[in-house]
């Protein structure tokens, strides 16, 4: 057995748009608080180091992983693992929406957001380059994976991590509340809850959802962070719309039981998927060059 149980703390708060130094301070405070709560991992929302709609602030809030601000957060992972998200700048001056997992004072894994939405109110691809990999890494809880917000709205993303054996999938998000007027419909909030519940059961793993709160130019981020168990039940749920640190214990025995009871990932026919994807790609290529 890879692990027995560990404790996750989710830092749900409202970053200051464009003020990296103020946000870094908040991060370090939450790292301390998570440590006091005996958590082994503390998870921050998408772009919590910069704010979400960075637009033309991108150029000044971007940080190379060697930047002192990033080094400080990595350094802060000596006693508790830290999953944080920022605008990453590469040596060749590309900008990514990145989530970094640091442990024991070292950078263990980087996930660069794969899907940068440009529909409706979104305009991410205008400023950022998309990541090209979705990989698991070894951390607390054995194999873990990261999907940033929109990544998780694509069916293939959790599938690819589950196939690699992920038992925990972290989802840092900056999800705006929208389409939420109707009495019968909770809009994006309801969609996230359904999505995490179905994914967790299909993949037989934990989902750790870290969504920010606050407002940016009237756009409301609703929070509602929490941990969804492999049985499709919430292990812990944070409040909507307010700062919180949500703490949950992730017990591997739940993964084990779920995967025995409903062995969907065991029965997954990865080679069939691969062959059919190649065929589907070949057919698509006749009229377009999709990737």
């Amino acid at each position: 057995m890879a692990w027995s149980a560990f404790r996750v703390a989710i830092a749900q708060f409202a970053p200051k748009l464009g003020d990296v130094s103020a946000n870094l301070t908040r991060h370090l405070e939450y790292v301390n608080e998570a440590q006091r709560a005996n958590a082994q991992v503390v998870v921050f929302p998408e772009l919590a180091l910069t704010g979400y709609q960075t637009q033309d602030l991108t150029l000044e809030v971007a940080r190379h992983v060697s930047h002192p601000d990033i080094r400080r957060l990595i350094e802060a992972s000596r006693h508790v693992d830290v999953l944080f998200s920022f605008v990453e700048e590469t040596d060749d001056c590309r900008f990514f929406v990145t989530a970094a997992y640091a442990s024991g004072g070292r950078l263990v894994h980087r996930h660069r957001k794969l899907y940068l939405p440009t529909y409706g109110m979104f305009d991410e691809r205008r400023y950022f380059a998309p990541g090209d990999h979705v990989r698991t890494f070894f951390a607390q809880g054995g194999q873990a994976g990261v999907l940033i917000c929109e990544d998780a709205w694509h069916l293939s993303s959790p599938y690819l991590l589950a196939v690699q054996g992920a038992s925990v999938i972290y989802v840092p998000a900056s999800s705006p509340w929208r389409n939420t007027m109707a009495a019968s419909d909770f809009g994006s909030h309801a969609f996230w809850r359904q999505l995490l519940q179905v994914y967790a059961q299909l993949c037989g793993c934990f989902f750790v959802f870290a969504n920010r709160v606050g407002y940016e130019d009237g756009v409301h981020f609703y929070g509602g962070s929490g941990v969804m168990g492999p049985d499709g039940e919430w292990v812990a749920e944070g409040p909507a719309s307010e700062d919180a640190m949500v703490v949950a214990d992730l017990d591997f025995r739940m993964v084990r039981r779920a995967r025995y009871t409903t062995p969907l990932m065991r029965d997954e026919r990865v080679r069939l998927v691969l062959a059919e994807m190649q065929e589907a790609l070949r057919r698509r290529a006749t009229d377009e060059t999709g990737d």
Binding site: T180, M181, A182, S184, F186, Y215, H220, S241
Partner: peptide, 16 residues
């Protein structure tokens, strides 16, 4: 479709 969840909308607007 145009019928509101009034307490939910009130909380978003007062928070705003």
């Amino acid at each position: 479709k145009l019928s509101l969840n009034p307490s939910l909308v009130t909380s978003v607007l007062t928070g705003f």
